[in-house]
Amino acid sequence: MSNKAIPVLATLSAIGFVVTLWLMYSFAPFDRALLFNQKIFYWHVPHAFMLFIATAVCGVSSLIFLKKRTAKWDDLALASAEVAALFGAAVLITGSIWAKAAWDIWWTWEKRLTMSLLLWLTLVGIVLVRRFAGASADRLAAGLAVFGTLGIPFIYTMVNASDHHPQAGAGGAALASHPDIKLVMWLGVLTFFLWFLTLVMMRVQSVAAEREVRELREKGLDAGVLS
């Protein structure tokens, strides 16, 4: 099933990239407060959305893996952790470029930036633990993912207490107030959601292939074919 789904999803998200890019230039209104830099928004914010969705998928599938011990969920947890780390890197890099354009500084220890960095470091930690912690790595990474996901609502509450970050929601004065801006942003979210699905499926496939190689090797060792 995933053999057919991956090309379809990839094509749809490719169309989405082009459409959002075109709408961003020609259709979305010019932002008077943040000017042309604001165009970074249309891809930056969807990536942030996907970061949170991927982290949540990773946390939930880790929890199910811990309870049920089926390898399928472990594959999904690993794949979504890696993809979440990728989206986190994307958010941090584009955010950093936007900060340079708008605030003339690459990085500032503003709360939301700090928390995104923290979340990203946790995700990188999961991927690293997965690779280097030896025999109990899968459980350990799963525990880290579950507790890391538990922390997200708390971190979110904490950050919202005082914040200078441009807001995608109601709080922002200049951003996303115009319906056309919102429309293009949600199109971007949809596009990158499809893209996220594509990447996770591809990664799950390769994790499954890795397991098959391992099993075949063991079989070969048992049969005495391999040394």
Binding site: L21, F30, L35, F36, N37, K39, I40, W43, H44, H47, L86, A89, A90, I93, T94, I97, W98, K100, A101, W195, L199, M202, R203, S206
Partner: peptide, 28 residues
């Protein structure tokens, strides 16, 4: 310079493309 600041936007989008392309290539 601020109103037509295409440099940063193009830079940001290029960074995203590179990241995605790199990951897909690695996976493939």
């Amino acid at each position: 310079a601020i109103a037509k600041d295409q440099k940063h936007v193009i830079l940001a989008y290029a960074a995203l493309w590179l990241l995605a392309a790199g990951f897909v290539l690695f996976l493939w």
